[in-house]
């Protein structure tokens, strides 16, 4: 097998799919209209088609050079996403303080240098910071905490 630029190939392929999906969606779901009275589907269909071809070009171009697929930091990604999701799930139900603790504790799994004691300390500092800036400074209507039960 000849070597190819795996990043570009993957990227091109994803773009091709996205373009095709966009055009497909616009074509099926939306009226296309005429040039004078363009329908809501006209522009997305055209953009999707353009993206489709550019994706194909990028993928074809990748056949000429070689490069390996980059490594992804899965652990960092998972921890950060878990932290953000935890925040999103907590803030409305339990309020700001629990949400910040959840965010910090979960996202600290990404780092090898953070232990739980430091993370707790960071959480406390961030709570005070958030309170001072968002609640006092900008007067945002966010609850510090609540007990939903």
């Amino acid at each position: 097998m000849r070597s190819i630029n795996q990043s570009d190939f993957t990227g091109g392929l994803v773009l091709t799919l996205l373009g095709a999906a966009t055009t497909g969606y616009a074509w099926i779901e939306l009226p296309i209209g005429t040039v004078r009275q363009m329908g809501p589907g006209f522009f997305p269909a055209a953009i999707g088609l353009l993206l489709f071809f550019i994706g194909v070009f990028i993928a074809l171009g990748a056949l000429k050079s070689s490069d390996r697929l980059p490594t992804f930091e899965l652990r960092s990604a998972l921890a950060v996403i878990a932290g953000l999701a935890g925040f999103a799930l907590t803030i409305d139900r339990f309020g700001l303080v629990p949400a910040i603790f959840v965010l910090t504790l979960l996202s600290s799994f990404a780092s090898q240098k953070l232990n739980w004691r430091v993370s707790l300390l960071i959480s406390v500092i961030l709570c005070v910071l958030a309170w001072a800036i968002f609640l006092q400074g900008f007067n945002m209507p966010i609850r510090l905490w609540r007990w939903p039960f």
Partner: peptide
């Protein structure tokens, strides 16, 4: 490692405060 939880918090609160909803998160 001490900085990034704080950056995440600013991202969360900054985004949340725009529409007071978690959809944007």
């Amino acid at each position: 490692q001490y900085l990034y939880p704080g950056i995440l918090m600013f991202i969360c609160l900054g985004t949340y405060s725009v529409s007071n909803s978690t959809i944007d998160l």
